[in-house]
């Protein structure tokens, strides 16, 4: 009984700051869109109102504690987006805060994308999709990724995809490529209409891009 009371009390204590939400406490909404109904505010950070659809929780926890630069030029809705380069990394949170923030972020969902397979690609198929990534769709012009030799290549106006396989959920990647307007009204990325097979292979290719493969 005593243990139960302690648990309830500690739960209450813990939930006091969380009642408003850690995201609110940390004022995340001053840079990030946290609600679907917020629009046209010129947010300087990426939209997070669908963070639960987009990110892998383990990556979020790690990133919030050990931030790295994913968008050196900032986020596309930032009014100062284009002239900027070499932005500093996101502020770092303690491990506890990072975990709490990640947990709240994972609750922010706006869709239920169709589950896709993130099965690794064969070497041959990977080479083929990499070719399409660079030449057919021109993704590399705006996104950094890893070439077959594990070297970082590509533009920086879009988010880096070097660690996409650890950062993003495969279902979301496929849904974003298929129907980006579900998430953002206006993007700076071209809209593609991929054949279902290409979309599937493309998603799987992006999920092979992981930081640990940098050579």
């Amino acid at each position: 009984m005593k243990t139960l009371t302690t648990l309830i009390l500690s739960g209450l204590l813990l939930s006091t700051p969380a009642s408003a939400g850690v995201l609110e406490d940390k004022n995340c909404g001053s840079c990030h869109r946290l609600k679907a109904e917020e629009t046209e505010k010129g947010f300087t950070g990426p939209d997070l109102h669908y963070a639960g659809n987009k990110f892998q929780p383990e990556w979020l926890k790690h990133f919030l504690n050990n931030p790295e630069v994913i968008r050196p030029a900032g986020f596309v809705t930032d009014p100062g987006f284009l002239p900027k380069t070499d932005l500093p990394p996101h502020i770092s949170s303690s491990k506890e805060d990072a975990n709490a923030l990640a947990q709240e972020l994972m609750d922010l969902k706006i869709s239920a994308p169709t589950p896709v397979t993130s099965e690794p690609l064969s070497k041959g198929l990977r080479a083929r999709i990499k070719y399409q990534f660079e030449r057919t769709f021109g993704c590399i012009s705006c996104h950094q990724s890893l070439n077959l030799a594990g070297k970082i290549r590509g533009g920086i106006s879009g988010p880096s995809l070097v660690n996409a396989g650890n950062r993003l959920q495969a279902d979301w990647v496929a849904d974003w490529l298929k129907a980006p307007e579900t998430y953002t009204a206006k993007r700076r990325m071209p809209r593609y209409k991929m054949e279902p097979d290409t979309l599937d292979q493309f998603t799987r290719f992006l999920m092979t891009l992981k930081k640990e493969n940098i050579k």
Binding site: A73, P83, Q144, R153, G155, I156, S157, R188
Partner: peptide, 19 residues
């Protein structure tokens, strides 16, 4: 869209240009 690579004044010097 275009200025990401072609630059704000179209001089081919957008932030992706050198990459």
């Amino acid at each position: 869209y275009c200025s990401q690579c072609h630059g704000i004044k179209g001089k081919g010097d957008g932030i992706n240009a050198k990459l």
